[in-house]
C-alpha cells in the first residue's frame, strides 16, 4: 500500500495542483480563441436576440 501521509498529500497538491490548473487554463484559452470556433460564438451571441418566441423545428447544423 502506498504511504499517503499528510506530507505526501501536501507535496502533491502544492506541485501538481499548480500544473493541472495552468494546463486547464491553456486549454480554455485555446478553445476560446480557436479560429474555427469564431463562427459559432458569433452566431450564439446574436441568436438570443432573435425575436421569434417559438421552439425550432430542425437541427440546422446537421
Amino acid at each position: 500500500m502506498i504511504d499517503l501521509d499528510h506530507q505526501a498529500v501536501v507535496a502533491f497538491s502544492k506541485s501538481w495542483g499548480l500544473f493541472y490548473l495552468m494546463g486547464f487554463f491553456l486549454c480554455v484559452v485555446v478553445y476560446a480563441f480557436w479560429p474555427s470556433n469564431r463562427k459559432r460564438f458569433d452566431h450564439a451571441k446574436i441568436s438570443i436576440l432573435d425575436r421569434d418566441d417559438k421552439p425550432g423545428k430542425s437541427r440546422p447544423w446537421k
Partner: peptide, 22 residues
C-alpha cells in the same frame, strides 16, 4: 441572457464570457 435581451445588443465579448466562466 436578460441584459443583452433587454438592451437589444449582443454581449460585448463572447470569448471573454467563456474565459470568465472557467
Amino acid at each position: 441572457y436578460y441584459l443583452p435581451v433587454r438592451a437589444e445588443r449582443p454581449i460585448f465579448s463572447y470569448r471573454l464570457s467563456i474565459l470568465s466562466f472557467w
